[in-house]
Amino acid sequence: MQRYEVVTLTLPIGATGAALPRIKQYLDETPSRGRFLACWYSDIGALNQIMVIRGYESAAVLAEEREAALLAGNPFGIGDLVTDMEINDYAPFPFLPPVEPGEKGPFYEVRVYGIKPSGLAPTIEAWRGAVPARTEISPLTIAMYAVDGKAPRFMNIWPYPSLDARNKARADAVAAGIWPPKGGPAHLTDLASSIFLPASFSPLR
């Protein structure tokens, strides 16, 4: 099954501008078996963060690259700037297509929900029923569940052309009664949400 690697790098205040060109150079020069999908920096929510997302054809391929990268040190060529780093692996909700690059944003809302221990399968089924109608209002980049770390939890990413468009899409979905998914909130425990903007070299932008 396909896997997505989400790396969140926390930097000192004001260091994002210096970090992004070095990340681009690292990605350009370092061979990878993963597909580079996104490099975003946080604008609302948890600030001073850069998120890098790559897709892998399998968990085994991801694990091999992860081990090599950790042993090499200097993550994404900015090890001297990083104050904290989280690496999380996700599997996509099985009914969704793979993430494809393109100009979808530039505002990306990244939402991470904690789920009750018995709630992952019902959450996926609730989304299976609700996503088609919801994505007629605005597109979904991906919804995916964690396969490591604190579990169960899932991440969903929504692109918007503006913050006003985000607010309207969410309000319209609620008013139409198609979102949130029926029964979905009953399985959730907590939520964190941030807005990210794309680096100039991000495939998803």
Rank of each mutant, 00 (worst) to 15 (best):
M1Q: 11
Y4C: 05
V7K: 02
L9M: 14
L9R: 07
T10F: 10
G14E: 05
A15C: 01
T16L: 04
G17N: 12
L20D: 07
L20K: 04
I23H: 01
I23K: 00
I23M: 09
K24N: 04
K24S: 08
Q25R: 14
L27G: 06
T30H: 08
P31Q: 10
S32C: 08
S32I: 02
R35K: 14
F36D: 00
W40G: 02
D43R: 15
D43E: 15
I44W: 14
M51Q: 14
V61S: 09
E65H: 03
L70K: 12
L70W: 13
A72G: 10
G73L: 01
G73K: 03
F76H: 08
I78C: 01
G79A: 01
D80F: 03
L81P: 10
L81D: 03
L81S: 04
V82H: 03
T83Y: 00
T83S: 12
D84L: 07
E86H: 12
N88P: 01
D89A: 15
Y90S: 06
Y90H: 05
A91C: 04
A91P: 05
F93L: 01
F93K: 09
P101L: 07
F107Y: 15
V110H: 13
R111P: 10
Y113K: 07
K116M: 06
G119E: 02
L120D: 07
A121L: 13
P122T: 00
P122F: 02
T123C: 11
E125Y: 02
W127C: 10
W127K: 06
R128I: 02
G129H: 10
A133K: 13
T135G: 04
E136M: 14
I137S: 05
M144A: 15
M144R: 05
M144G: 09
K150T: 14
P152V: 01
P152I: 07
R153Y: 01
I157N: 03
P161N: 04
L163R: 09
L163M: 14
A169T: 06
A171I: 10
V174P: 04
V174Y: 14
I178W: 10
P180V: 11
P185T: 08
A186V: 12
H187W: 13
H187T: 08
L188D: 00
L188Y: 03
L188S: 05
L188H: 01
T189N: 05
I195V: 15
I195A: 04
A199T: 07
